[in-house]
């Protein structure tokens, strides 16, 4: 079982969290002309790396905050967690 360090609550069991996917994907900015390709890349296309992966998690059964986790997708080792507006 994963033990995830919520930046607000500390180490908690995986059961309290839900997953939000790749945190490196950037939504095209508002008010700017956006090509179809930029939208498709944002919505569907992913790097999907084996190894270090930055991702969103949601402490859904806890403080209900979204935050970022840097995790190894092959070993599940968690390197770091951070608040949503911080670089990871």
């Amino acid at each position: 079982m994963l033990e995830i360090k919520c930046p607000y609550c500390g180490n908690r069991s995986q059961n309290e969290f839900s997953y939000g996917g790749d945190a490196t994907v950037k939504r095209p900015s508002l008010g700017k002309e956006v090509s179809d390709k930029e939208w498709d890349d944002f919505v569907y296309f992913r790097k999907n790396p084996r190894g270090k992966h930055s991702e969103f998690w949601h402490h859904v059964a806890g403080c209900r905050q979204w935050f970022k986790v840097s995790r190894n997708t092959a070993t599940h080792e968690i390197f770091k967690t951070s608040k949503i507006n911080e670089e990871i």
């Binding site: 995986q14 084996r50 992966h53 991702e55 995790r71 997708t73 092959a74 599940h76």
Partner: peptide, 9 residues
């Protein structure tokens, strides 16, 4: 969650 580990949780 994204995983390349051929074992589960």
């Amino acid at each position: 969650y994204n995983s390349y580990a051929q074992r589960g949780n």
